[in-house]
């Protein structure tokens, strides 16, 4: 009886050895990540912005407003663009206090199929405008924030 138990235990151990613990990503369970939209306006107050970005392997599941009070409301998105896997966002500042400098103006909440590692957002276009509606040059990027993994 003891020998039989040993045999079963050995067989179980071999089976376990042949099936290493599963990588959670390999199960393709949905995961959730966050991408930040950061703009550096320098000395110019920011009144409006718009961007188009694609993120392979991710689906947008929420759009959050930014840190400055003027951009706290969640940006609008173009639902038609989402059908082509493009994310088109736009926001207009509210209030009189327009922020300047390096700002997180939005946060994208996305889901992945679990197989994706670091997401690679590709910025297709971006526009920033001042209080007079004039375009101005600003540094804008979409980056993984490291939260929500």
């Amino acid at each position: 009886m003891i020998a039989f138990r040993l045999l079963v235990t050995l067989a179980a151990a071999l089976l376990a050895f042949g099936n290493p613990p599963q990588d959670p990503a390999a199960t393709h369970a949905p995961g959730f990540q966050v991408l930040d939209v950061v703009v550096d306006t320098g000395a110019i107050p920011l009144a409006a912005w718009q961007l188009e970005v694609t993120v392979e392997g991710a689906l947008l599941v929420g759009v959050e407003g930014g840190e400055p009070a003027a951009f706290r409301d969640a940006p609008r998105y173009d639902p038609k663009a989402l059908q082509g896997d493009r994310i088109v966002l736009a926001a207009l500042a509210v209030g009189d206090e327009l922020p300047r400098g390096k700002l997180r103006v939005a946060r994208l909440h996305v889901t992945t199929n679990g197989s994706s590692g670091n997401l690679t957002p590709v910025l297709r276009s971006a526009v920033t405008a001042d209080a007079e509606g004039r375009r101005f040059e600003a540094h804008l990027e979409v980056q993984a924030s490291g939260e929500g993994r």
Binding site: L123, T128, E137, A138, E141, Q143
Partner: peptide
Amino acid sequence: MTMRPNTMR
């Protein structure tokens, strides 16, 4: 990744 508006499409 980053882009500047003057180089964007």
